[in-house]
């Protein structure tokens, strides 16, 4: 993907640049939603003053109303408060896991791309082995060894996404190294270190910003999936995936218990993807 993107970037007309730079309504909506999620993560108490752990069995299974925006769960806890308070956990896992995956992936990719033939060969074989295992399986494997919990989930998702990033970084690096402007720099006698710093690395890593935005959405989905399976956040902590799993039992009678956390998982992932694509389009057209 990335190799083609970069090559296509060369011929650009003025019209195309302008269209790409203008953010559409979808992007604004995505940005607004993410802003809400980030605000919830930073200052949950501001948006939902109710205690997400406070039980009230007498008011269990209340459907959404003005008093309880998203209804209540089986113990009478406010779903809205839980979704808002859960944003921090979900977002933190998403961002930390992606940062871990990207960081590790970049290190491996750069090592492979610059390390010479033998290092490249070694790293590539390692990546191929890791690729043979589906990412989620790799995450499950790590959790079985270390035990469930939020930190483990973050590590597991992060490590499982690293091989994908590594391969993209390596491919990008090889393309940039062979690009005309890099060759021009070589011909002009620019030093190796300076060439790496000024030309190769910036052009390799810029597209990663877009990838990272896409990755956060995916990491949140993965982390939720692990929590859904009971391998992530521990009860009764308000984590979106765990809430979804708890609501599953009551799907036919209290749909709001799983619909709202599910909606937040989907919307966060979609918003991340929409913004990520936007970034990608812009870096491509620059």
């Amino acid at each position: 993907m990335s190799a083609l993107d970069v090559r296509a970037a060369a011929p650009t007309g003025a019209v195309r640049v302008r269209r790409a730079a203008r953010a559409g309504a979808g992007e604004w909506l995505a940005l607004a939603f993410l802003a809400f999620v980030v605000l919830a993560a930073v200052a949950a108490g501001l948006l939902a003053p109710a205690d997400p752990l406070a039980i009230d069995p007498a008011n269990a299974f209340d459907p959404p109303s003005l008093a309880q925006l998203f209804g209540t769960d089986e113990s009478g806890r406010s779903i809205f408060a839980r979704v808002v308070h859960g944003a921090g956990t979900s977002l933190l896992i998403g961002v930390a896991a992606t940062a871990l995956g990207l960081g590790l992936g970049t290190a491996l990719g750069v090592l492979a791309g610059l390390g010479g033939r033998f290092v490249d060969f070694g790293v590539n074989r390692l990546l191929e082995v890791l690729f043979a295992l589906p990412g989620l399986l790799l995450a499950l494997f790590l959790i079985v060894i270390v035990g469930p919990g939020t930190l483990t989930t973050t590590l597991a998702v992060g490590l499982s996404t690293a091989p994908g990033y590594a391969r993209i970084v390596r491919a990008q690096l090889l393309t940039v190294r062979a690009a005309p402007y890099t060759e021009a720099a070589t011909v002009l006698g620019v030093g190796w270190w300076r060439k790496l710093r000024r030309h190769i690395l910036p052009n390799t890593l810029a597209p990663l910003l877009a990838l990272g935005t896409l990755g956060v959405g995916q990491a949140i989905v993965w982390a939720s999936a692990l929590s859904y399976l009971g391998l992530g956040a521990v009860p009764p902590s308000p984590e979106w995936g765990a809430m979804l799993a708890a609501g599953r039992t009551y799907l036919s009678t209290a749909w709001w218990m799983s619909v709202f956390p599910g909606l937040f998982i989907v919307l966060t992932a979609v918003s991340g993807t929409v913004l990520g694509r936007g970034f990608q389009r812009r870096t491509r057209s620059r």
Binding site: I55, S75, T249
Partner: peptide, 17 residues
Amino acid sequence: TNQSIPAEQSLFEQIQA
């Protein structure tokens, strides 16, 4: 988890609270 149903696990959470 094999020996308790979801409703019971929720009850345990309420006892915890």
